[in-house]
Amino acid sequence: MLLEYYSTYRNTRKLPFVAGQSAPQRRASRGGWLLAPAMAWLFLFTIVPVAMMLVLSFWTSTAYGIKAEFTLDNYRTIFGEPVYLSTFARTLRIAAVTTALTLVVAYPVALIVSRARGGWKAIALLFIFLPFWTSYVVRSFLWLPMLGRNGLINFLLIKLGIVTRPVDWLIYNEGAVYVGLVYAYMLFMFLPIYQSLDKQDRKLEEAASDLGATPARTFWRVILPLSLPGVFSGCTMVFMFACGAYVTPQLLGGASSLMASNVIGSQFQISNNWALGSALSITLMVIVLFCFMLGSSRLGLLQVLSGSRR
């Protein structure tokens, strides 16, 4: 699935205005109306609904429906009650740790694959992409028969005589959420890093080694600095996606490791408190947009989405 996305990544790097040039514009502006349908669609089905939710977040949900009176109570609840504050703190912590773990997992693989020879490189890339072509929900669900009481790991632990009864601490906690999230978002880290590593000029490495640098020094002083835009882009994407994770924590996390998205979902599906749910959504949206703007202020909006670019 995401291999196509990879092509999107590569293509956006060539967008003319990304490079600060404008497309040839000698024609009159008569064709501009062609943008209107898409803009109208996004305005009507993204901007207007978000604006409605913003208004709703200042109203109150009662047993009889929504009371349309301005109040800050929902936000007071969010920032006053430990349960909501700790949910957001946990969400940010899980997103940060997931980003770090994903980086540690993906970077060496990206480096190895980018330095592999033609045929091996293609095979490795195919096998890295393949799991991401399977369904998203299946990818999260996969870890249930791995980590559960009757799962593979417990089965092996018992078979090897390490434990006598199945252990329960493998799943329904924050650790399981990390496993699931790294599994779910690895490609978003791998791709930009791989791209920035793959397009480096190998002559730089040769030059460094000719000048007497050890491989380690070449890595720290040449390879790593040149790959930082990719690292930065990958980290922004993974952090942003992890902040909004829903499926993985719902399936693999216990009650104590639910994330902001799960709490928002339950406001709408269980508690039926739309006003508070709206305020929670607006808060999460502000956090994610802030992260994205922080990321794109350094690299540019499309560069963050499109991977590294120098």
Binding site: F45, T46, M52, M53, Y246, N262, S278, M285, L289
Partner: peptide, 17 residues
Amino acid sequence: LPIILPGVVTGVVMLVF
């Protein structure tokens, strides 16, 4: 914007809408 907004936020925003 639709790519950046978290999935659940989009979901509930549209539910409300």
